[in-house]
Amino acid sequence: MTDTAITVEGLRKRYGDTQAVDGVSFEVKHGEFYGILGPNGAGKTTTLEIIEGLREPDEGTARLLGEASWPRNPALLHRIGVQLQASAFFERLSAREQIHTFASLYGVPGDRADAMLETVGLNDKSGTRENKLSGGQAQRLSIACALVHDPELVFLDEPTTGLDPQARRNLWDLLRTINSEGRTVVLTTHYMDEAEILCDRVAVMDNGRILRVGTPAQLIEELGVRSLEDVFLQLTGREYRE
């Protein structure tokens, strides 16, 4: 086995007039905690979804754990866990029923699902229907569903958006634990402090391209600024994004 968990080469994806992803290549090593940063519309979600095998790239390839993720590869799907930017739940099912359904899709026993619910602090919301959960609770459930089958490779698209400070800290702990067990984690975030604390390496994206890759400390040093936030602003400018 090579030491790269993810190999992405020359990804391009176009939506009508928008070149959402414009030649993205990078590698993520086994056990690495990798962050993708970028302003709104930079192409982070599109890139992740192509890598996960949810969308077909116009050009380029993504290999996960040595296997191509497109066309759909069910064997691979057992080994990856995905939290999509917009949560996706079964209609009218309770939190507990959601995670149990996902667990059984992956052949995971029910007590593991209950334990996961406990881990994200949703125990007392287990009987609550999906549409009655608060935004942050839904987000936590979505993360729990992504992690229920103990995947080797975890993709999280803005996992901490909408979480309260407690839940955010708890999720950080959870992700660090997972990562320290040797699992590879890829996440996108708009919180620079989070990226700085969690990520081994970050990639800064804009307009569908990767501008810079490196450890947070490296990037700060290279650009001679004080924080990752300054790195981000310097690389991507201060104007609003459409």
Binding site: L77, A86, A88, Y106
Partner: peptide, 18 residues
């Protein structure tokens, strides 16, 4: 339609179900 709108179809695409 509602499974598509709720994106659960996409989520299932990423789960190992046929």
């Amino acid at each position: 339609v509602s499974w598509r709108k709720k994106r659960i179809l996409r989520r299932l695409w990423l789960a190992p179900v046929s």
